[in-house]
Nucleic acid binder design. Structure first.
Lengths: 236, 236
DNA sequence: ACCTGAACACCGTTCAAGT
DNA sequence: ACCTGAACACCGTTCAAGT
C-alpha cells in the first residue's frame, strides 16, 4: 500500500490537446453555457489558472474548439472528395454537405459556436477551397462559384439557422385540453390563417412522424432548392 | 432656486417600454455583450434590481428585445403586403425580405439575438403567416409552402449567417508587405488552389468596390437562387 | 407601491507565491 | 517549469430593508 497513483489522474502532463478534449467533453455534457474555465479545469483535476499556460484565454479555447470540429469535417470529407466526372458536381457537393451535417450532429453545440467564433480559420479555408474547386471543375465561372459560397452560407457546412418551428409552445401548450386547443386554433385562423391551416394539415399526417417536421428532410429540401438555382446559372 | 427637478430624470415612472428602449440603446452603443442588467439600469438612473419589477430576468428582457425588432419588421412590411396579382408572389416575397433586411440593418445586434432568442413568438408567427400566405395564394401546395419556410430559414427575415469571408485576416494580414503577400499567395495556391485563384480574381476588380464582397449583392444572389428553385416546384 | 443595499454564487483574468 | 491561492472587477439574482 505504498504511494500508488492517487484517484485523481494528475500525473499526465497538461497539454493543449487535453484541454481541448476536456472542453469538448464539458460541452457535450452541459452545453456551451456550461463551458467555463473552472469547469474545464475541474475535468482535468486542475485549477482554472493552469489552463492559461496552454490557451491564451477563453476566446482562444473556443476558437480552437470550432477549429477542431471543422478539422473533423475535413477528414470525414477527404475520402470521396473529387468526383470522377466533373459533371457530377451536384452529387459531390450534396454528399460533402450531408457528410458535414452528420459530423455536426455529433456535436450539438458546434453550430452555435461556428456562428459566434466562425472567423475564417485555416480549416475553414480548406473546406471552402475544396467546395469551390468542385464548382470550378464543373465549369462554373469564378464569379458564380464565389457567389455560390456566399449563397450557401452555413448550409455549406451542413446546418441552417432556422427560426421557424411550427411545433412551438405557442401552438402546443394547450395540447392537454383538446377543447381549448380547438378554441385556440379558431382564434388562430382569424389572425393567422396560413399557420392555422398548416397546423391543421400537419396534424393529419404527423401521426407517422415523430415530431412536426423532419429536420433532415427540410434541410435537404432547402439544399436542393439552392442546387437547382445553381444549375440554372451554370452556363451563364 | 427652490427644489427644482434634479439633473437625473428619475421622476418619470419606470415602465417595461422604457426598460426595453434603454436596453436597445445600450445594444446600439455597446453591442450585445454590453447589455447588462446594471448597464441598462444606469441609463435609466436606477439600480439594477429595479428592473426586475418590469422584466422577469435578463432572458425575458432579451426575448422582449427581439420581439420588438420583429414587430418593427412587421410594421415595415404591412404597407405593401398582398400583391394585386397572386402570380406576383416572387417580387412580393423578394420585397418583403429586403424590407426586413433594411430594418435589421438599423439594429446590428438583432441577428445574433434572433439566433439565440428566436423562439416562435407572436410577432414571428405573424411574419411567417404573411410569408406563407403569399405562397399559398400563388398556388403553391401546403407542403411546398411549408418546406419553403424552412428552406429560407433566417433568410426569410433578411439575414444570412455566413462564415465565408474572403477578406479575412489570414489572407489580408500581410497586405503592408507586398512581397510577403505574394509569397503567401504562392504558398496558398499550392494548398488552396481555388481560394488563391479567387483572391487573385477579386483583387483585379475590387478596386471599384469598397471591400472584397458586396454583402447586399451576395444576399440577393442567394435569395434569387432559392426563388428560382421554388419556381421550379410551383406546379409539382 | 416602488426602489435600494447588502449579499450570494458565480464569471474571466491578473499576479505574486509556492514547489 | 509548472501549478496554485488569493484577489480583482465583473456578472445575474435573492431578499430583507428602506421610503
Amino acid at each position: 500500500m505504498g504511494g500508488g497513483t492517487t484517484r485523481t489522474p494528475r500525473r499526465r502532463p497538461l497539454t493543449r490537446a487535453r484541454v481541448l478534449r476536456a472542453a469538448a467533453e464539458v460541452a457535450d455534457r452541459s452545453g456551451l453555457a456550461g463551458v467555463t474555465m473552472r469547469s474545464v479545469a475541474d475535468v482535468l483535476g486542475v485549477e482554472a489558472m493552469a489552463l492559461y499556460r496552454h490557451v491564451s484565454g477563453k476566446n482562444d479555447l473556443l476558437d480552437a474548439l470550432v477549429e477542431a470540429v471543422v478539422e473533423e469535417i475535413n477528414e470525414a470529407c477527404a475520402a470521396d472528395d473529387t468526383p470522377a466526372d466533373p459533371d457530377d458536381w451536384r452529387p459531390a457537393l450534396r454528399r460533402r454537405i450531408l457528410t458535414a451535417r452528420a459530423v455536426l450532429q455529433g456535436h450539438p453545440w458546434a453550430p452555435a459556436l461556428l456562428g459566434s467564433h466562425g472567423t475564417m480559420s485555416p480549416a475553414l479555408l480548406r473546406y471552402f477551397d475544396r467546395f469551390g474547386s468542385i464548382l470550378r471543375r464543373a465549369g462554373f465561372s469564378m464569379d458564380t462559384a464565389h457567389h455560390a459560397l456566399h449563397a450557401f452560407g452555413t448550409r455549406a457546412l451542413g446546418f441552417s439557422s432556422e427560426l421557424f418551428q411550427p411545433g412551438s409552445p405557442a401552438i402546443e401548450e394547450t395540447e392537454a385540453d383538446p377543447e381549448a386547443a380547438l378554441a385556440d386554433l379558431a382564434a388562430l385562423s382569424a389572425e393567422l390563417p396560413f399557420i392555422a391551416a398548416m397546423v391543421g394539415h400537419l396534424s393529419h399526417e404527423a401521426a407517422s412522424t415523430i415530431g412536426w417536421c423532419d429536420d433532415q428532410a427540410e434541410f435537404e429540401f432547402g439544399l436542393d432548392l439552392l442546387l437547382d438555382g445553381l444549375e440554372l446559372r451554370r452556363s451563364r
